[in-house]
Amino acid sequence: MKSSLKRAARHQKHWYGKWHTWAGITAGMILIIVSLTGSFLVFEDELDVWLNPELFDFEEKGQAILSFQNVITKLKEDYPDWDMGGIYMAEKRNHAYILYLHDGEQAIINPYTAEVTGVRIYRESVMGFIRHLHRTLFIPPFGKYLVGTSSLICAILMITGLRLWIPKKWKHLKARFGIRWSGNKKRINFDLHNSLGFYFSPVITLISITGVVITFSQFVFLFLFLLSFKSPQSIASIFDQKSNYYENAKALSIDELEAIVEKQVEGGILMGINFPHDSVGTYGMNVLAPAVAKTGDHCMFWLDQYSGEVVYSSESKDLKLGKMYLNWITPIHYGTFGGLPTRILALIASLVTATLFITGFIIWLPRWKKSGNISIKRVSVAKKTKAKAVENELESEEVL
C-alpha cells in the first residue's frame, strides 16, 4: 500500500512538472511583460502626476476645493461645444477633476479654480501607454484575451509549483524555505526560484485570478446574474435607465442631485458623475461610502434628471454580487484595498512574478539542451544500427 502511494505521488509530480514547464514556456514572455507593466500600474496615479507636473501641480493647493456644480458650470461657460460624458475627482492625482469627452479625450481641471490645465488622449501618455500594453499587448481585442488566458496559466503555475516545491523526503523540507548562497550559480538560481515561488504564491495567485476576472468581466457579470436568479437581459437594463421626460421639464442642478445621493448613503461623498446622453437619459452618480477597505465602498445611483428619483442603484438586491466585484476585484488586483502596505506588496509580487519566469527559464534551458543532445545521440545510434543491419544483409546475399 505504501509503495503504491509513493508510485502515485511520483507519477503525479511527474505530470505536474510537465504542466508547470510547458505552461511557463507558453505564457512566460507575456507574463513577464504583464507583470513588469503591472508593477508600474500599482502606483499609476502618483506616477502620472510626477510625469505631468504641468497638468497636476496646482499653486492653489491647500485652498477649498470647488464643488462639482461650480466646476461643471464654469466648463459649460468656457467650452459650450464640449460633448461631456462624465467627470470624476482623482483623489490621488492631487484631487484634480478629470472630465471625459465623447470623442475619447480627457480634460484635466484645476479643482481650486476650475481652469483646464490640459486636454489629452490618455493612451498617448506614458502611463496610458503602459496600461494599454498591460491590458492588450497593443493587439486589441485579441491581446486582451491573450493576457487574461496567460493570467489563468499563471495561477496554474503557482498551484503546480507548490506541488513541485514539496521535497521527496520530509527531512529536506527545511532546505526549501531558504536560499543556499554558498552554492554554485545554478543552485542559487534554483533555490531563488523555489523560495520566491513559495512565499509569494498566495499573492501572485490572487493577482492572477483577479486579472482573469477583469479580462472576462462580461462573462463574470453574466454568471453573477445567474447566481442572483436574474435574466441576462437585466445587464442591459441597468445601463438603459430612462428619465420621465415631460414637456417643459427642467433638469435638476448638480447640487440638488448631490444632496439626494448623499442622503442615500450615510457619510457618502460624491466622487463622479456620468451625464445623461439625451432628454430621457439618467445621471449616474458614484458615491464613496466609508468601508473596511482603504478604497472605500463605491455605490452607484441612477437618478431621473428631472425629479431626482432613484431609478436604479447598486444597493438593490440583484446587484449585490456585482457591487462586491466592483469594490474588491480591482483593489485586490492592484493591491489598493489595504493602503500603502498592500500596494507595496503587490508591487513586489509583480516583480517577483517576472523573476520567477526568468529563473525558471534558466533552470529549463540546460535541461532542454541536454534532452536535445540525448535525442540526437539516440537518433545517431539508431541510424548506425540500421546501417549495420543493411550492410550485414547485403553481405549475406553476396555469400548466397
Results as ranks from 00 to 15, higher is better:
Leu31Arg: 09
Pro290Lys: 02
Val352Ile: 15
Val280Phe: 05
Ala251Asn: 09
Gly17Asn: 10
Ser375Asn: 14
Phe177Asp: 12
Ile269Lys: 13
Leu157Tyr: 00
Val310Lys: 03
Ile348His: 04
Asp103His: 03
Thr26Lys: 02
Gln305Ser: 02
Ala291Ser: 14
Ser313Gln: 07
Val379Tyr: 13
Phe200Asn: 09
Gln264His: 01
Gly62Phe: 11
Pro276Tyr: 01
Thr37Trp: 10
Gly197Tyr: 01
Leu345Asp: 00
Trp181Met: 14
Lys171Ala: 13
Asp78Ser: 06
Gly360Arg: 03
His333Glu: 03
Ala251His: 07
Ser151Ile: 03
Pro167Gln: 08
Phe138Ser: 02
Ile25Leu: 14
Leu326Glu: 07
Glu46Gln: 15
Val399His: 02
Val126Leu: 15
His95Phe: 15
Glu54Leu: 07
Ala96Ser: 15
Val42Lys: 00
Lys242Gln: 10
Leu252Glu: 05
Ala107Cys: 07
Leu47Asp: 06
Glu397Ser: 03
Thr21Glu: 11
Leu326Tyr: 11
Met127Ala: 05
Tyr100His: 13
Trp22Ser: 08
Arg187Ala: 12
Ala251Gly: 06
Leu51Val: 08
Leu345Trp: 00
Lys174Glu: 11
Trp82Ile: 06
Leu340Asp: 04
Thr385Val: 13
Arg135Glu: 13
Lys185Met: 08
Glu60Ala: 15
Lys144Asn: 06
Glu77Gly: 02
Ser217Glu: 09
Leu47Lys: 07
Ala64Cys: 01
His95Val: 03
Asn244Pro: 00
Leu356His: 04
Val261Leu: 01
Gln241Leu: 02
Ser371Trp: 12
Lys320Glu: 03
Ile207Val: 11
Tyr100Trp: 10
Glu46Asp: 14
Phe138His: 07
Leu270Glu: 04
Trp50Lys: 13
Ile179Thr: 05
Phe58Arg: 01
Ala349Lys: 03
Ile374Ser: 12
Phe177Val: 02
Ala346Arg: 00
Met127Asp: 08
Ser243Phe: 08
Leu5Asn: 12
Lys294Trp: 07
Glu54Ile: 05
Ala27Phe: 02
Phe198Pro: 09
Phe138Glu: 04
Phe223Ala: 08
Thr295Ser: 11
Phe129His: 10
Gly143Lys: 04
Pro366Asn: 07
Leu31Met: 14
Asp45Lys: 10
Ile344Arg: 09
Ala389Phe: 12
Met324Gly: 15
Val212Cys: 06
Cys299Tyr: 14
Glu91Met: 06
